[in-house]
């Protein structure tokens, strides 16, 4: 069903039982009953959001990784969606709290919200988005929180990836302009014809092993990577955290093929979260994904 179409227009086949369980890719991860995360502030296991804005369709979900579900830890990923109606701009942010930082769940939650708000404030002016300033403001939010609670700012360490999709900005062939900016290893891709094109440079480490440290706010606000591109009708912008990016394996593996197929058109909000919560052995980090589609003209 397309957005705006009424449910009555297409008869819905009644399903008597709910299909349960995750999509399995390769060897499944063990099935466990998650332990509730009991810390403050409240950090739900899963969040799912989505809708349409300015002719764009967006889906967003963040799910707690199996490891945190096993030990009862909070989800350290977060996301934020915002709009700037005057400029017809969708703002999206994802953050991946550094697991070694004890309050990175709070850090991620603050970073995405302050960054989205900073972008919206800047769009009120006429100038292009000042990305270094956006990231400084997000970093400052972490430093301020650290002062408030009397802790070291590093306890809130988090990556941050922010994107704007501006429908009003001119681009050829009915495309819309996309800008992305990131500190750390949370990547952005454009998914077009089942191909994943990176929009910010998230190259693997030179020695071919995973790891090598990660840039994170508030310390590394100046290690900013900025990219831009266009979103053509039928293609999707993907913003994700490491928990998705690692098994995505540069867009080449089983997961990449499955996601490309399932995201060829927007799933509904809950199905999108279910998709993100796929089962795959050894990949038990938190996962966050925002997808923005520029639908084809009807």
């Amino acid at each position: 069903m397309r957005p705006g179409e009424s449910a009555a227009a297409s008869p819905v086949r009644r399903r008597l039982r709910l299909a349960r369980g995750p999509m399995t890719i390769g060897e499944p991860a063990p099935s466990i009953e998650p332990r509730l995360a009991t810390g403050e502030p409240y950090r739900p296991d899963t969040i799912a959001d989505g809708g349409s804005a300015f002719g764009l369709i967006v889906r967003a979900a963040s799910v707690r990784g199996l490891h945190k579900r096993f030990v009862g830890g909070p989800r350290q990923d977060d996301l934020c969606l915002a709009t700037h109606p005057a400029s017809s701009t969708l703002i999206a942010a994802v953050a991946d709290g550094v697991s070694a930082a004890p309050r990175s769940d709070v850090g991620a939650a603050l970073a995405v919200r302050y960054a989205a708000a900073a972008v919206a404030r800047q769009l009120d002016g006429e100038d292009p988005v000042d990305w270094p300033d956006v990231f400084e403001q997000a970093a400052w939010a972490l430093v301020t929180e650290a002062r408030r609670v009397g802790d070291d700012p590093s306890v809130f360490a988090t990556t941050l990836l922010v994107a704007t999709v501006c429908v009003a900005a001119p681009a050829p062939e009915d495309a819309v302009a996309v800008q992305v900016a990131a500190v750390g290893d949370s990547p952005a891709f454009r998914l077009r014809s089942r191909h994943y094109d990176p929009l910010v440079d998230s190259r693997p480490s030179e020695d071919g092993l995973i790891g090598g440290g990660v840039a994170a706010l508030p310390r590394d606000a100046r290690e900013l990577m900025v990219g831009s591109g266009t979103l053509e009708p039928g293609s999707a912008l993907l913003l994700c955290t490491d928990g998705v990016a690692l098994p995505l394996a540069g867009g080449e593996g089983d997961l990449a093929r499955a996601l490309a197929r399932e995201l060829a058109t927007p799933p509904d909000v809950v199905d999108f979260a279910r998709l993100l919560d796929f089962s795959r052995s050894t990949y038990d980090d938190d996962r966050t994904l925002i997808a923005v589609w520029r639908p084809r003209e009807r």
Binding site: G26, G208, A249, G250, E252, G253, D254, Y283
Partner: peptide, 12 residues
């Protein structure tokens, strides 16, 4: 093949 190309089966 780039570093992680092909079918990945897990991380170790």
């Amino acid at each position: 093949a780039p570093v992680f190309a092909g079918t990945v089966v897990g991380q170790v």
